[in-house]
Design a binder for these strands. Structure first.
Lengths: 184, 184
DNA sequence: GTCTATAAAGCGATAGAC
DNA sequence: GTCTATCGCTTTATAGAC
């Protein structure tokens, strides 16, 4: 019988899903081996540092995804307005229109912030700064751009919380629409 | 030596603090006995249902606090604008100006939502509805009131996430100020 | 790279003395 | 109402065969 050989990179999205669902402490190795269809041996082969290394790898991948798909357009799109619009589209797509939660937000609220505080902080800082810069390029003064960028990033996170609490993904979509409008 | 006798009601705020800090799965009995200065025997005497009953009691107490201090003013203050203002003040005070996190929000994001989904949903539903009613009493049409209420509650939660992620409580205070202004 | 077996520690919960 | 001792289970992590 043929045997599937996994690669480290293949496992990370599965780990992300598990951490998102159960949090860091709730993501037991039993759940991890079940979710990845890999034995403990394989998991520890890829991540000798255990759960801590797994979570760090996941955070790093998430940050990479946002850097490329959301922050880069904000910074480099020739027309700032188009970069902002692109960011909103990618965010809506990434969070499955409110059916998927933000792992970095989950870690920010929990005590995981102590272990991964630097990564969590960097992710949000980068987001706010890139959006601020785009808003400035779009004609706003620095003060109101900072203010609005903060409001948008917080609003996105809050939209995810409320959408999930009420079990109404559309709450998140409505939130995005309002914020989009305010950036115009 | 005199012995301190605890009451169930005294323990609940301490439990709230522990669940807020570590989440449901992270709140081990070791942390609970340490945080409450009570033995397992005493804890299980108060909460025979174990952690599940503890968390339910905490959620119930939080809901009670908000009902009295935030939702009631929204519904019953003679001047709607004053009820809204009062809600914002109480919220800022409750969350220690951004230094304290919302346990219901934490549970909403995590898989605790499965166990406590009803309580989580009821809390946010009540909040949005009470604020909507106050905004209508304050002269808004129903549609824009619903919209704004949703934005405010989500914004508050997002403000808490971002403030904690950046380790800047003032981010939360600024968020409240913006939302307050928008309700005026 | 994958698996099974296993170790050592921590977990939630219970029992029973005081 | 409080405490200590203990049960049975799950946890993370390691070892070693394949």
């Amino acid at each position: 019988m043929a045997k599937l050989i996994a690669e480290r990179a293949d496992v990370i999205p599965q780990l992300a899903e598990i951490f998102r669902t159960y949090g860091f402490e709730g993501a037991s190795l039993a759940r991890i081996t079940e979710g990845t269809k890999l034995g403990k041996g394989s998991i520890y082969h890829f991540f000798p540092g255990g759960k801590e290394e797994m979570a760090a790898a996941v955070l790093s991948e998430i940050d990479g995804w946002f850097s490329v798909n959301a922050f880069l357009p904000l910074r480099e799109e020739a027309l700032a307005a188009q970069g902002i619009s692109r960011m909103f589209d990618e965010v809506q797509r990434y969070f499955l229109s409110g059916r998927k939660v933000c792992l970095v937000g989950v870690f920010a609220l929990g005590n995981e912030r102590d272990r991964f505080g630097a990564a969590v902080k960097a992710y949000f800082k980068e987001w706010v700064e890139a959006l601020t810069a785009a808003l400035v390029r779009n004609g706003r003064d620095a003060a109101s751009a900072t203010d609005l960028a903060e409001e948008v990033v917080a609003g996105i996170q809050g939209g995810l919380v409320l959408a999930r609490a009420l079990n109404q993904p559309k709450v998140f979509v409505r939130m995005l629409d309002r914020l989009k409008l305010r950036c115009a």
